[in-house]
Design a protein around this nucleic acid. Structure first.
Lengths: 231, 231
DNA sequence: TGACTTAGTGGCAAATGTCAACTAACTTAG
DNA sequence: CTAAGTTAGTTGACATTTGCCACTAAGTCA
């Protein structure tokens, strides 16, 4: 292996984000309208070059892009995968480090004013958004959706799509929405208790329902609790 | 985001591999002695620059490095994570796309002559190798070991450390070695049947044991079967 | 105050997992 | 050739877990 610093070994490198939020209608993903070639005018996953003068590391780069596009800072950011090849970008050999970010609908709504003008939430339809998007971003989006739908079955991931405080019924609704099926209330509550990733906020009840419901929060807002057995 | 092609946005990019094999004594990892600065003379995970003139994509780059260092081609290569920051390489902002490769002891032995001279198998001790290694490779190795030890509990990963043909007892031994505990034979066999990732090779028995044992192969040599419930 | 809605819990039947003991297919020694 | 021994493979009793229906509880509303 030859070891010398020149452009023969330096690909284009970006971070790209699959940013999701959840409404009663289902998952939405954030897309941006590209201003410049290649793919000018087309929708894409938000992303950008790594600013080696500003970004201390990859996660910092991803967080910067997330903030720029949504105005939101999320505790939950997961690296999906890195894709890189000669053919994926007309400008040259390029690498994309792809992250998944999960935002609660609340946070999104609160920061709607701070959203980038070129960005828009689009409902997820099946494995994509129902229309073509730039680069290989359709494949990346499909991969991200696969990751989310898989992890819902064995982890606390849905909790990261809720506001910081939520009820068990709200959590169950998110699981059901992402799983695409109804869950038994008793079994669900038993599972959540067993998985031990929630803590009741003492003295805080949600009075919107007929019977006041206990409010919970995630014990760990940055990482997922993994279950021993799939739902 | 400014979009222009210059070195302000081009980090150093390499692929690095955590290559494992298993002996009765436990896991071993391949290390290489670095010839050049930085960290000249120190041990590191094998890796190298992406050759944008030769490598069609990242996986091709990883496979090239694997072949160069071990002489072996493995069906099983998994992307671990991508790490990148300003501080991890003295030469500048750098990214490493890290892969895990699993080789059977058989394949390693058969191709020992083709192994790179600067490469050496080292036994895994705890979360590392028991001595310092270059760059942030100790952290990467720890991460890779964590990934493997986690996935043993809910997937067919151990099958990828065996030769293409193996018996259930051999497979069980690998699980026990990586899990660090004994498994009940009957329960183990029931689990493997349930997970449905093995197929018996008709008419092929291993006669090394007292009672001839059925020989199996993995149904899918490139990807893992995931279990519904952890072992 | 009673009907209704939602939250939260209990308990039993069904399903699943554990593992000891069994049978089977050899090899080895006498 | 046969019995003993070793390993592979299977069975089934019992323990544990899970699913889910029905119950109680805490309100709101008319």
């Amino acid at each position: 292996m030859t070891t010398h610093d020149n452009d023969a070994f330096k690909p284009i490198a970006t971070v790209d984000l699959a940013i999701f939020s959840l409404s009663p209608a289902g998952l939405s993903v954030l897309l941006v309208r590209r201003a410049n070639a290649p793919f000018a005018g087309e929708w894409a996953l938000p992303g950008g070059w790594i600013h080696i003068d500003k970004d201390l590391d990859l996660e910092a780069a991803a967080r910067r892009v997330l903030k720029e596009k949504t105005g939101v800072e999320t505790p939950y950011l997961e690296q999906l995968q890195t894709t890189g090849s000669a053919g994926r970008d007309p400008r040259g050999w390029s690498i994309s480090i792809v992250y998944i970010a999960l935002l609660s609908a609340d946070d999104v709504e609160k920061r709607r004013d701070a959203m980038a003008e070129d960005a828009e939430w689009r409902p997820v339809e099946g494995d994509g958004v129902g229309f073509p998007i730039a680069f290989d971003h359709a494949a990346l989006l499909k991969e991200a959706l696969g990751r989310i739908r898989n992890k819902v079955e064995y982890s606390s991931l849905p909790g990261h799509l809720l506001p910081a405080r939520f009820t068990l019924s709200e959590l169950q609704s998110v699981y059901e929405n992402l799983l695409g099926r109804k869950l038994d209330k008793s079994a669900f509550r038993k599972r959540m208790a067993e998985a031990d990733f929630l803590e009741p906020i003492e003295g805080e009840l949600r009075r919107a329902s007929n019977r006041p419901a206990q409010v919970f929060r995630l014990k760990d807002i940055k990482s997922l609790a993994l279950f021993d057995r799939r739902i």
